[in-house]
Amino acid sequence: MSEEAQSAQGTGPRYDVVEIGMAVAVTAFGAVVVYGSLLAGIDWASDGPRAGFFPFYIGVFIVISGLIILVQAVMNRSQTMFASWSQLRQVTSVVVPATIYVAVIPTIGIYVSSVFLIALFMRWLGRYRWPMLLAVSVGVPLFTFIIFERWFLVPLPKGPLEDYLGY
């Protein structure tokens, strides 16, 4: 319902293009599995099948089904839209900050990066005022810090700031 309404509004990538891309990705993944299995050995040793025996056939199945999906997608090209560009912009506005977030966790730690992530979302999507924004974005990581590091004694990734504070 909403999709039809929005497809009238704007333009976007075609569904079949994405479908073909997914099929290619599936096939490629299958090929990697087959290659990895070959490295591990796919024949039978004295103590039964070697480590790569089962993954090899699984990889082969993935490649075959990937190719069939690919052929089907190429045969039935449709003009339907995958999603409008404005919708995809919304999606990327989450994917990009979230990807940066997970990428910096190993260096600056999970607590500091979480402060930035929450603050960014609240400012960008919610347009909150600073007092509220600071309260939530600092409060949530602080709360998790107390629960995990102090209470449950579960160490989470920490960076220079925590190091400076002696944790």
């Binding site: 979230a98 999970i110 960014l120 919610g126 949530v140 990734p157």
Partner: peptide, 17 residues
């Protein structure tokens, strides 16, 4: 959503770690 989504992301990251 703009508050709960990043908080969910943070908890998912903690869980995954």
């Amino acid at each position: 959503f703009s508050i709960i989504a990043p908080v969910i992301l943070v908890f998912c990251a903690i869980g995954a770690y």
